[in-house]
């Protein structure tokens, strides 16, 4: 059994397997399938200041080796989370991390400040990369000065571990990573979904109500790996890698590219027990290859 401990900023987690926000609900959806407490952490569904209904149906389209979604941050708002969801999920013996969203900087601060008061939650993930909302989200994450402004503002309002989730829909991901590091991020999560679209030639209509949506799944993995590699060698803070991880081998590739931890997203929809299988597979890989701890393979790409 190798040492799987890793850190995502100031916060140490017991193993590097986390779940990507928006793919794992609040954890309770997966309780029938796995022991949630075995995971390194869970990133709960993105939360905004006020309740949001999200986008109209249809919100999903299957595409080769992936899927497009256009959920649009449907959630009941931070106050509902604090009152009703947090008490229920506090029982999990794993790091619960809130994915924080907003249409304005003030809304991001409002959510972050309310989460800071929750003892069990030691980190937030600032989502400046949701492609499915008209205001906020990717608007912040694809304009460098805005990314800096929102990161700085939340940094000033939130003292625990601050992860910033970047959008891949930019020309130079490293510029954004360096900018949010400078602005006070403790770690960087990447990638969020890639903006895409799908069309039904028969009906000549888009498959999503919003026309465009976020692409995830194995189709995006090569892009994600490349971005993790570029960013990890440029910043000093930890990088949390995600994008199409379906099994332990995929996860290992992300560690080799420089990720200190990983998040499993779309794979949860196909195999609700996949996170535990990935965790066990990582351990097996380390054991079989003579590594005693995870950190030995982080950024260990043999070039």
């Amino acid at each position: 059994m190798a040492n799987l401990k890793t850190n995502i900023g100031k916060l140490e987690i017991k193993n590097p397997v986390m779940t990507a926000s928006g793919t794992f609900g609040f954890g309770t959806e997966y309780e029938d399938f796995i022991d949630i407490s075995r995971l390194g952490g869970i990133l709960v569904k993105g939360i905004t200041g006020a309740e949001r209904q999200g986008n109209p149906y249809p919100r999903m389209a299957e595409t080769p080796s992936g899927m497009l979604n256009a959920v649009g941050l449907q959630n009941k708002g931070i106050d509902y989370f604090v009152e009703h969801i947090y008490p229920e999920i506090s029982k999990f013996d794993t790091e619960i991390i809130v994915n924080v969203n907003g249409g304005t900087i003030e809304e991001y601060i409002d959510v972050a400040s309310k989460v800071e008061k929750l003892n069990k939650i030691k980190a937030i993930e600032l989502n400046i990369s949701c492609p499915n909302v008209k205001q906020g989200g990717m608007v912040f994450g694809t304009h460098c000065p805005s990314a800096v402004a929102v990161t700085q503002a939340v940094r000033n309002a939130y003292s625990k571990t601050l992860m910033v989730k970047l959008s891949p829909n930019v020309t130079n991901i490293v510029d954004f990573a360096l900018a949010v590091e400078e602005a006070g991020a403790d770690s960087i999560s990447l990638i969020n979904t890639l903006l895409g679209m799908a069309i039904d030639a028969k009906t000549r209509k888009p498959l999503l109500s919003t026309i465009t949506g976020g692409l995830s799944g194995p189709a995006v993995k090569p892009v994600a790996l490349r971005m993790v590699w570029q960013v990890a060698k440029s910043v000093k803070i930890p990088v949390i890698g995600m994008g199409g991880i379906m099994n332990a081998t995929d996860a290992i590739e992300f560690f080799l590219a420089g990720a200190s931890a990983i998040q499993v997203g779309t794979a949860n929809f196909i195999n609700p027990a996949v996170t535990i299988e990935i965790l066990e597979g990582i351990n097996e890989y380390l054991d079989n290859n003579g590594f005693s701890c995870l950190s030995e393979i982080v950024g260990a790409l043999d070039i």
Binding site: G22, T23, F24, G25, E29, Y30, K45, Q53, G54, P56, Y57, P58, R59, M60, M67, N69, V71, Q74, N268, F269, P272
Partner: peptide
């Protein structure tokens, strides 16, 4: 409805209701 996960995680199969919205 079209579904992603079938277990309430992906929020893709929504239907609009009078009492609770999506």
């Amino acid at each position: 409805n079209l579904m992603g996960c079938g277990i309430g995680a992906c929020l893709c199969c929504i239907v609009d209701t009078k009492d609770k919205g999506n």
